[in-house]
Design a protein around this nucleic acid. Structure first.
Lengths: 117, 117
DNA sequence: AAAATTGTGTAGTATATACGACACATGACA
DNA sequence: TGTCATGTGTCGTATATACTACACAATTTT
């Protein structure tokens, strides 16, 4: 569950192998947090950071914010806002898709993107 | 935004007109919170309660938990868990459906329910 | 008229969230 | 060999979350 920290650490260390700008200190500096805090996050000594910090961290490491938020046990507030506007509709849809294979979900995504409405 | 409290109050008072069991005290009793707390919630003096309490409250008042959670500014954790398992997929889908009319979303729900996969 | 029920004001609490500041030993490097 | 950067340990804090406990005046019920 505290998969978040170790994942961040792996990604950062991989990037660091050929770019010195990915030390704990430098990443923390760019992301706007204390190095000691990032260190603790990576070792799972503290809970994953806030949504905003997680997103900035994901961006700095070139990762997908939604994926990183998921690892942090969160769902981005903009997605939540969309759901909250039509709760019944989206609740049904999401529960419906719970067991559906990726393929089926992807097909739905494409269908909607191609605007069949 | 603190639409939540007034909505609860209206629903409860409506039910109360022909059922004495829907006083602040009795509802609070069944839901498992202090009457004073429910009173404050209804008047928007405090923030909406936790997810668990909101759901019990919705059930007691015969309302849809997802809708009540939405009014409380929340999205139920079980929906979030589904999203977090496949963040990219669901993030795409939901953002895709943001502007889609209810009709289109409903069609998708039915399509999936009828198991075209 | 007594008893019970109503809603609400006041005050306080326990736990979680989300960090910052500083110091320090170790290792790299020039 | 001195300087600089590295990661991390310790301690503290501000704010939010989610309530409880008690009391009390007003109304309702019996």
């Amino acid at each position: 569950m505290t998969h978040f920290g170790s994942t961040i650490r792996e990604i950062r260390e991989r990037l660091r192998r050929d770019d010195r700008r990915y030390s704990v200190r430098q990443v923390a500096g760019r992301v706007g947090i204390e190095p000691a805090y990032l260190s603790k996050i990576e070792r799972g000594e503290v809970a994953p950071p806030s949504e905003a910090t997680t997103v900035r961290l994901a961006q700095d490491l070139g990762e997908d914010p939604d994926v990183m938020l998921a690892l942090a046990g969160k769902v981005s507030t903009d997605l939540q806002a969309i759901i909250r506007k039509r709760p019944r509709l989206f609740a049904d849809l999401i529960r419906q898709l719970k067991e559906a294979p990726d393929k089926a979900v992807l097909r739905v995504v494409r269908e909607v993107r191609d605007g069949n409405w």
